[in-house]
């Protein structure tokens, strides 16, 4: 009796997993389930690696579960079976050492290629220095005379408080909105320099597949080349104290002409 339940539980879990993944593909009103594909060449490669790994793992997992469930159903004492006596087989053991190793080599190759691309920070057309503080981000455009702090927007700040009258449900982009977003041009290779003023933070925008630590006293580098204009939202990803959940990252990508207009407006050279 209990084994039937185990069987159903296992099948149910797999079915739920498959259903949820297909649900994400259909985007049928379910909350987001999967990594976003993102809006850069790199983010799509990362998404591809993620989906490849997810599929390989799902197949291996399904294989393990099917073998296990087959044993549970067929090789049970209540069916009057006699247990086999064997307890080793060199050839089988070599096979399940070598085959996984080969799979690993096969996935290591594309992973390495993508990583090499991500780490190549040369050829930047503009540079922004990002500094994490407790608890906001500071953006400094090294090629322009622009710098500003970016704080959680007023509505979210009011709504998150204990016993607040303003419900988070009534705030647009609750906890993912700022008073002043970072602005970048599309189609431009932008270098981001990361550091921090107090403790370690991490700057993360899932749509760019970029996450890196902002470390006081050290400078980290990454780069992004956004293809589509849009507003992209992320959060601090490294625990940085009381306000860790309340220092979002918002990046607005504008067409180069619109970006130039924004720069002119910011610097008052219009």
């Amino acid at each position: 009796m209990s084994t039937n339940r185990l069987k159903f539980a296992g099948a149910g879990l797999l079915a739920a997993f498959a259903l949820l993944l297909s649900g994400s593909a259909m985007a049928s009103g379910l909350p987001p389930l999967n990594m976003p594909e993102g809006v850069t060449e790199i983010s799509r490669e990362v998404y591809g690696l993620h989906m490849m790994m997810l599929k390989i793992c799902a197949v291996i997992g399904a294989l393990v579960f099917v073998i296990m469930l087959t044993s549970i159903i067929l090789h049970r004492k209540s069916r009057g079976v006699t247990p086999a006596k064997w307890h080793e087989s060199t050839s089988v053991e070599i096979a399940w050492t070598v085959i996984p190793f080969a799979i690993l080599v096969a996935v290591a190759i594309p992973a390495t290629a993508t990583l090499v691309k991500m780490e190549d920070t040369g050829g930047a057309e503009m540079t922004i220095k990002i500094t994490g503080y407790q608890w906001n981000w500071h953006y400094d455009y090294l090629d322009h005379d622009i710098e500003f702090f970016s704080n959680l927007d007023a509505d979210s700040t009011q709504a998150y408080q204990l016993g607040s009258d303003l419900s988070p449900l009534d705030v647009e982009h609750y906890l993912l909105n700022v008073d002043e977003p970072m602005v970048i041009p599309t189609g431009t290779r932008v270098r981001l320099l990361l550091t921090a003023g107090d403790v370690i933070h991490a700057w993360w925008v899932p749509e760019f597949a970029l996450k890196k630590d902002a470390i006081p006293g050290f400078i980290n580098e990454m780069w992004v080349n956004v293809e589509k204009p849009g507003i992209y939202r992320g959060q601090c990803a490294e625990l940085c104290g009381r306000g860790h959940g309340f220092m979002p990252v918002v990046v607005v990508a504008k067409e180069p002409a619109d970006f130039e207009a924004w720069v002119a407006e910011r610097t008052g050279t219009e």
């Binding site: 073998i67 049970r76 079976v81 247990p83 399940w96």
Partner: peptide, 26 residues
Amino acid sequence: TMLIAVPTGVKIFNWLATMWRSAMTF
């Protein structure tokens, strides 16, 4: 890190092989 999957896999496969053609109770 990826290499760790190999010995870990061996352990899981060994448990599966132990179950195979055994006489299980639950």
